[in-house]
Amino acid sequence: MSKSPYINRDVDNEKSANVVWHQASVSHEERMGLNGHKPAVLWFTGLSGSGKSTMANAVDRLLHQLACHTYVLDGDNVRHGLNGDLSFSDRDRVENIRRIGEVSKLFVDAGMLVLTAFISPFRADRELVRSLNQATQFIEVFIDTPLDVCEQRDPKGLYKKARNGEIKQFTGIDSAYEVPVSPELRVETAGKSIESCAQLVVDYLLEQGIISRQN
């Protein structure tokens, strides 16, 4: 496993020592009871063009139909605001995922199902996010789409730019993507419909007792 390039940005130790966690008056268990299902992070990872965002939104729609409380955190959308100060260097990619991991943890604390669609190329950083949650509350969903298929899709024209040298440090071309070793779910999208792939994810949540058809 390669070492994450993350560097701790919190150097103000004196300030950090005076920050304490404030206990909410409404408990995590009470929030879960109100929502009617268990909370979890569904972490969609894969190459650009693999179908992460499309899949996350398709699953979100199915969960909404089951009256589940959900939210999708999309890689592009988050960079418009929360992570708008970050570049696509390896260091900032890691900080991007760290921040999303912390935000996702808050959604889980609120008793919700949060779906994240990020390339998240480094294995160590995905494991960091996993460690923030209970074992059953982090579900890594590897959207396993071959590079050549992603390049054929190339919905944003990014692969073409990367091949032409217009984009540097592009994942899968000149920046590494570390394939998940043992994800909870591996979804192969090539030659399959979005609907059938999304249903695989929902079926997994049903099998694990995270949601029910009575939600």
Rank of each mutant, 00 (worst) to 15 (best):
S104A: 15
Q169F: 13
D109H: 11
Y204I: 04
G157A: 12
V181F: 01
I173L: 11
D174G: 11
G209I: 02
R98H: 14
S193L: 06
L147T: 03
P183T: 04
V108N: 00
A124M: 08
I167P: 02
L128K: 08
D148I: 14
A124H: 04
A176L: 14
K156N: 08
P146R: 02
V129G: 01
I210E: 07
Y204G: 05
G209M: 04
L113D: 03
R130F: 12
N133W: 02
G172I: 06
E178H: 04
G111K: 00
R99N: 06
C197P: 11
F122G: 04
I167C: 12
T116C: 13
F122Q: 06
E166F: 14
F170N: 09
V187T: 03
K105N: 09
L132Q: 12
E151Q: 15
D144F: 09
R126S: 08
A110N: 10
V114D: 01
F138Y: 14
A198N: 02
V202W: 05
V141T: 02
L132R: 11
T189F: 00
T145W: 01
I143C: 14
P180V: 05
Y177W: 09
L206N: 06
A162N: 07
F142Y: 15
V114N: 05
E195R: 09
E178I: 02
L200T: 08
V129W: 06
M112Q: 10
V94A: 15
S182M: 13
F170A: 10
G191I: 00
L185W: 00
G165R: 03
K105G: 04
P121E: 07
T189A: 07
K192M: 09
E166V: 09
E188A: 14
E151N: 11
I173S: 10
S120A: 14
R123L: 15
S182V: 09
P121I: 03
L206V: 01
G101H: 06
I119D: 01
F107G: 01
D109Y: 11
E195C: 05
Q169M: 14
K160H: 13
R153Q: 10
D154W: 03
V103C: 13
I211R: 04
Y204Q: 09
V141A: 03
